[in-house]
């Protein structure tokens, strides 16, 4: 019944003809038993295929916002819900989480919360079996997800003997096997060592670039993410303060909102303070951009 309902729903489009896949209107949420809004007056529009970073201090409402996008709020967390959230044209209040999870899949900070089966394959297959999909289809999707994350060789391993970075990839694969159009990630690299974190970020970037998956990721470590992001959203006290291309947002003084800007951007700011002619037209977001611009001017 719900599937028919979803098919019938007309998808809204953005002014430029891009498909608007996430639309949040005047969203507010107050958890039951608390006396303040965890998020308030949130408005957000994200087009299909966009790569969006969500940043801000701990406790600013990032996780609550993500929970609203995959329906955990209001379906699992009780509280006062205001405004509306449309995911792929569907109002999250009218759609059960098992349908929403096929539209917007969520990966959490700690992959141990998401993995429980005896093998990686079984873990990825589990939600598909729950959907009652035919055996063939399940096998194809597990294969596809393993390949997408380049973890085919882990298929028969127990999730619990994997490294933290591998576990996180398995968690992403099991979410992607549901074939969502949107991948929501809540600080997925926070417990990973730097190279494992970079590998995971590279895999996520490839999902966006090659497979046009819409990505919304909350993170504290922005260095490797920012050069690839289409938009950067900065939250503070439950509200979205900035939502624009990262280069534009980083012109503002975002440090006070707990956002750690890449060190190259800090260097450019310090160069500006010293004064004189700077070799950059736009703020470089990575070491590569910094060197490319500098060489361009010196040539």
């Amino acid at each position: 019944m719900f599937r028919d309902f979803i098919r019938k729903t007309r998808l809204p489009s953005g002014v430029d003809g891009d498909l608007r896949i996430i639309e949040v209107k005047d969203l507010g949420f107050k958890y039951a038993g608390t006396d303040f809004y965890a998020i308030k007056e949130v408005n957000l529009e994200i087009n299909e295929g966009e790569f969006v970073i969500l940043a801000g201090k701990s406790g600013c409402g990032k996780t609550t916002l993500l929970r609203c996008l995959n329906g955990l709020i209001p379906h699992f967390y009780e509280g006062e819900f205001e405004g509306r959230v449309l995911i792929d044209g569907v109002d999250t209040r009218d759609c059960p989480p098992y349908i929403l999870s096929q539209k917007a899949g969520m990966v959490f900070q700690n992959p141990d919360n998401q993995l429980f089966a005896l093998s990686v394959e079984a873990d990825i297959a589990f939600p598909l079996e729950n959907l009652g999909l035919p055996r063939e289809e399940i096998r194809d999707r597990v294969e596809w997800a393993l390949k997408l994350l380049k973890i085919e060789e882990l298929r028969s391993r127990s999730p619990f003997e994997l490294s933290a970075g591998q576990k996180q990839k398995v968690a992403i694969a099991s979410v992607l096997a549901m074939r969502p159009k949107i991948l929501l990630l809540d600080e997925p690299t926070s417990s990973l060592d730097p190279i494992s974190a970079k590998n995971l970020i590279d895999a996520i970037i490839e999902l966006n670039r090659k497979h046009r998956l819409t990505i919304l990721i909350s993170e504290h470590r922005l260095t490797h993410l920012i050069p690839h992001a289409d938009k950067l959203a900065i939250m503070d006290k439950g509200k979205i303060l900035y939502f624009d291309e990262p280069r534009k947002v980083l012109k503002e003084d975002v440090l006070m909102y707990g956002v750690s800007i890449p060190r190259v951007v800090e260097v450019v700011r310090e160069m500006r303070k010293i004064g004189g002619c700077l070799p950059f037209r736009e703020v470089p977001l990575s070491v590569d951009e910094f060197i490319r611009d500098l060489r361009g001017v010196l040539r």
């Binding site: 060592d193 730097p194 890449p262 310090e270 070491v287 060197i291």
Partner: peptide, 28 residues
Amino acid sequence: CNLLPPQLITLSRELEFIGVRPRLYSPR
């Protein structure tokens, strides 16, 4: 050890062509 150098070590190394010596600098 699965670690990456701090970004400014990488930047200072790439800047050797203008005479910067690779070091652990602060942004300033």
